[in-house]
Amino acid sequence: MDAKKKEGGVTKVVLITISVLFIFLMLVMPLISVIVNSLKKGFEFYIESLSTEYVISSLKVTLLATVIAVVVNTFFGLVASWLLTKFTFKGKQVLATLIDVPFSISPVIAGLAFIMTFGRLGWASPLVDKLNEFLGTDIQIVFALPGVCLATIFVTFPFVSREIIPVLNAQGKDEEEAAALMGAKGLTIFRKVTFPHIKWALIYGIILCTARALGEFGAVNALSKTRGQTFTLPLEIDALYLAGSSDSIVGAFAVSSLLVIIAIIVLILRNIFEHSNKKDI
């Protein structure tokens, strides 16, 4: 018995050591590296790199695209998860799979999709032209802000619904049925019965969606070409890094450090929400 316990103890120590080393080498070192690189030329230079016109413009574009994507996808997530968990209908599984499509598609293809729809060769390009003519406006989609927003919505599309659906599935629909039989209206049922169950999942989905929207690179890269106008933070990081001078590379890491801080906040919030979620159940 004693020998067995010892054997288990050794395995335990070895496995934990492997895990900690792997996580440190693969995940923690890059975080440290970003911070070290961003402060290489001192704190003043760090602040200076963050307050250039380009960075501030890209911050604004990023925030705009993120807010729009989060609002659209939260609305969609609530509606779609209600549909997919409270009703049985033909093709439900197909629908669920289609909603998850953006997860398994390269973001570059997402960018390409909008270029092929609204770009010069796209079938919807004459429609946009006609609309502009009618309204007397000059709205461009591709290589302009609407394209950046659409691409951001695309890549974060399933984030909210994906967090809510498992919770609602686990909860079942008896409570909603009871409420409906007692005469409650749809919105009331949602607010009073469903919402308390999905509160944490919803908040967590929104956080994930926000993080992903802030950091989207591939799709936006295909649709945004004007630095200082339609560039997002990740595109600005790319431009600074590829400029290649030691100043601009430090600048790239300085901007990156902002996104690292956001990523760490997301991880901490996730940890907190997961624990309160477990307590709720």
Binding site: F76, A80, F87, F157, K173, L181
Partner: peptide
């Protein structure tokens, strides 16, 4: 099913999914 909202949520889900995801992807295929 006594729970309300099937038609509405079905319509919104299909419309948003089509406009934002499927139609742009279909443009690539076409």
């Amino acid at each position: 099913n006594v729970i309300p909202g099937f038609g509405l949520t079905f319509g919104i889900t299909i419309a948003m999914l089509s406009l934002l995801i499927l139609i742009p992807l279909a443009s690539v295929l076409v």
